[in-house]
Every structure is written in structure tokens, then in C-alpha cells.
């Protein structure tokens, strides 16, 4: 189960780092639910997105810095990103689209046809 992400030495080391929740925006339209997560410093290969048992989970490991760099001050700690949400029913899991650009993950989850609002045409006689 955990083997889906290709591991190298650095990511394995980083996986022992404490987990923090990425900042997220979540919004919903009649057609879809959209999740946006800030994952700065994470390379696309070090990001894992999973759907399982009506749950979406995001895991990302920021790339390590050069070991020869001596820190003068640090606000960005050594950590990994981790967050999971229970999903409501009525989403079309097969049509989920995810995009990861400039450290921002966007997941678009369309609602099933039956969940979308329908307008019913009323015929005049």
C-alpha cells in the first residue's frame, strides 16, 4: 500500500520528519468540488495523492536542501505534508482530475450525473 511512491534515501529520511497539514482552499459548485493545496518545495515525484474508502489523502515531501549549506536562520522547518479528508458520496471518482504546478495541487472532483442539479423543462400546452 505504501509502496506506490518510489522511495529514495532522502525521501525515506524525510518520512521520519514531523507531518504538518498543508494550507488548503476547498470550494464547491453545482458541478464539482475543488481542493487546492499549497505544497511548496515538493517535486512532482515526491507527491502522493490517493483515493481510498471515500477518503482523499495528500502526502508530499519537500526536497531536501544541500547539506553543505549552513543555516543562518530557519522559519521553514524539516517536515512533510500530510492531510486527508472524508469525501461526500455522489462524486464520480473515475473523473477526478489533479494538476500540480508551482507547488500548488489542484484536485477537481466532478459530481455524479445524478447529483448534479437538473432543470426540468415545462412544456406549455
Amino acid at each position: 500500500m505504501e509502496k506506490t511512491m518510489q522511495k529514495n534515501e532522502t525521501t525515506e529520511k524525510m518520512e521520519s520528519a514531523p507531518a504538518v497539514a498543508p494550507y488548503m482552499d476547498i470550494y464547491e459548485s453545482p458541478e464539482e468540488i475543488v481542493m487546492v493545496a499549497d505544497l511548496p518545495g515538493v517535486r512532482p515525484d515526491d507527491l502522493e495523492l490517493r483515493f481510498e474508502n471515500n477518503e482523499i489523502s495528500i502526502k508530499g515531501v519537500p526536497a531536501p536542501v544541500e547539506t553543505t549549506w549552513k543555516p543562518r536562520f530557519r522559519e521553514i522547518g524539516s517536515f512533510r505534508y500530510e492531510r486527508a479528508f472524508k469525501l461526500p458520496s455522489g462524486l464520480d471518482i473515475s473523473k477526478i482530475k489533479a494538476d500540480f504546478d508551482a507547488g500548488v495541487l489542484t484536485v477537481v472532483m466532478p459530481k455524479s450525473e445524478s447529483e448534479k442539479p437538473h432543470t426540468i423543462k415545462i412544456h406549455r400546452r
Binding site: 544541500e66 553543505t68 549549506w69 549552513k70 543555516p71 543562518r72
Partner: peptide
Amino acid sequence: PANLYDNG
């Protein structure tokens, strides 16, 4: 947020 390093 920022980190500052010195690489020599």
C-alpha cells in the same frame, strides 16, 4: 516564510 543559508 524564509530560510537563509550560507554556502561559503
